[in-house]
């Protein structure tokens, strides 16, 4: 049987082609943006600021589109023979697919940071003369590293949470639709997606309310004067809450994959 690492690597490579193609297209868009910024800056505005605004906007939209594309790629894997006939346990398969999507998005994120740095190099170089001043200001203001760390952790966990939440809805719909007649199947599926999303969101909302009350109690007990620590603690607690939700939903997803979700016979 294939190891988890090998499977994750293979599934990563399977998806990375999409990321590479998309990043290549993004570079073309960024180059076009730089040319546009060059012409608009000649009318008096700052060239560096113009480039930063354009590249940041392109990168933001690219990140949203990439997130959507990877979600679609992730969901395809659950119902295709090509992937589901790989001889691995459902839990290993689930984690490897989720891991490969996450690593691809991380890879895409690193590419975004590099692209932003490269395309804004002139602005960065010109800001070097203020480097001493920036460092001094940051050290005087006690740079809130704990807040940054907590925020990044929360973002990572929320991204994973969204992916597994989409998977949950997809797998529930797949499981139920095998019991419905094939006649008007598309209509049934649309209705099912709406219904399942509504029910799952209702349940999630209820659990969220309960945990939110605990969350408020916890944060009010903290020292309000220490804003940075309070913010960091709040975000860490939210991360913990989402981690528990991720684990719980993942158990349901693996169960559905193992017991109910079959490959799509129409793809044959």
């Amino acid at each position: 049987m294939i190891s988890f690492n090998k499977l994750t690597k293979a599934l990563f490579r399977d998806k990375v082609r999409v990321v590479n193609t998309f990043v290549s297209m993004e570079v073309v868009a960024l180059l076009t943006g730089v040319v546009l910024a060059f012409f608009s800056s000649s009318k008096g505005s700052s060239f560096s600021a113009g480039i930063f605004a354009i590249t940041f906007t392109i990168s933001f939209f690219a990140s949203v589109i990439m997130f959507f594309m990877l979600t679609v790629r992730q969901e395809r894997v659950w119902t295709r023979n090509f992937y589901r006939l790989i001889p691995v346990s459902s839990s290993k398969f689930y984690l490897a697919n989720l891991g490969s999507v996450f690593l691809n998005y991380l890879y895409f994120g690193i590419a975004q940071v590099l692209l932003l740095l490269i395309f804004n190099i002139s602005g960065l170089i010109s800001s070097f003369k203020y480097l001493d001043e920036i460092v001094k200001t940051l050290s005087e203001a006690k740079f809130p590293y704990q807040v940054i760390f907590s925020a990044i952790l929360l973002i990572f966990i929320m991204v994973i949470f969204i992916w597994i939440f989409v998977t949950l809805i997809h797998l529930i719909v797949e499981s139920i639709s095998t019991f419905l007649p094939t006649l008007h199947e598309k209509i049934y599926r649309v209705i099912l997606y709406v219904l399942v999303s509504f029910v799952v969101l209702k349940i999630a909302g209820y659990i969220s309310n309960v945990s939110n009350n605990l969350f408020v109690e916890f944060t009010t007990s903290l020292d309000k004067a220490d804003v940075a620590n309070t913010a960091a603690a709040s975000m860490l607690m939210a991360s913990g809450y989402f981690t528990i939700a991720v684990i719980f939903i993942s158990f349901i997803n693996v169960f559905l994959l193992k017991k109910w979700v079959e490959t799509d016979p129409r793809s044959i």
Binding site: R84, L85, T178, K258, K259, E262, T263, P265
Partner: peptide, 10 residues
């Protein structure tokens, strides 16, 4: 064949 191959479980 799908059942033998493991594409369907129920």
């Amino acid at each position: 064949m799908r059942l033998i191959a493991g594409a369907a479980t129920n």
